[in-house]
Simulated assay, not measured.
Amino acid sequence: MLLLLHLFDSVTSSPVSIYTPAPFLPLQILPPSSFPSNLPSGPSSLIPSSISSSEERAHCPLKMSPSTVVVRFEDPVTVNCSVPPTGFPALGWEVPNRMETPLFTMDRFLVWSVARMTEWNIKPKCYALVEQGGQCHIELLVTVYQPPDSVSISFRNHSGPLLEGHQYTLQCEVHNIAPVENLTVTFYRGQTALGQLLSNNTEKKPVTEIFTLNINTSKEDDGVQYWCEAKLELGPEGPQHPPVVTSQKLKAAVLFGPHLICPTKLQVKEGESLSCEVRGNPQPSVTWLRDGQEVVLPSHSSRKHAGKYTVWTKGHLGQKNFTVEVEILSGSGTANSCNRYFLLAILFIQIINWL
Rank of each mutant, 00 (worst) to 15 (best):
Q248V: 02
P239C: 04
G292V: 06
T105M: 10
Q319M: 11
I177A: 00
P40K: 08
T192Q: 14
S53L: 13
Y168M: 07
Q171L: 09
G333V: 04
Y145F: 15
K219V: 12
V69H: 04
K63E: 03
L197A: 05
T323I: 13
S332R: 03
N339C: 11
S82A: 06
S67G: 03
L198G: 07
I18D: 07
D291I: 12
T334L: 07
T118W: 08
P206V: 06
N281W: 11
M99G: 08
K219H: 15
L141M: 10
L163N: 01
P76F: 08
Q248R: 14
K249F: 00
Y226N: 00
P36V: 10
K308R: 11
F73A: 03
N281E: 00
F8T: 15
P89G: 08
T246D: 04
L39M: 05
A230V: 15
T192I: 14
K231C: 08
S218R: 12
D291K: 13
P148V: 02
S154R: 03
C172R: 01
G238S: 04
E325T: 08
T169L: 05
L27V: 07
I346H: 11
E272K: 04
V254I: 08
I351Y: 13
I346C: 13
A128W: 14
N38E: 01
S150N: 02
G238F: 11
F35K: 05
E139V: 10
T310F: 09
Q240G: 06
E56H: 12
M117Q: 01
E272Y: 05
V245K: 09
V83K: 11
G292H: 08
K249D: 02
F24Y: 15
Y226K: 02
E220V: 12
L62V: 02
V286F: 12
P243N: 04
I122A: 11
S34D: 02
Q240S: 03
L329M: 11
Q248K: 14
N121C: 08
S13I: 15
L140E: 00
N281A: 11
H305P: 07
C172M: 02
Q196P: 03
N339G: 07
G331A: 01
V311L: 05
S301M: 06
V77N: 07
W120M: 07
V326T: 09
G134P: 00
E229V: 06
M99A: 03
K231G: 04
N80M: 04
I138W: 06
P239W: 07
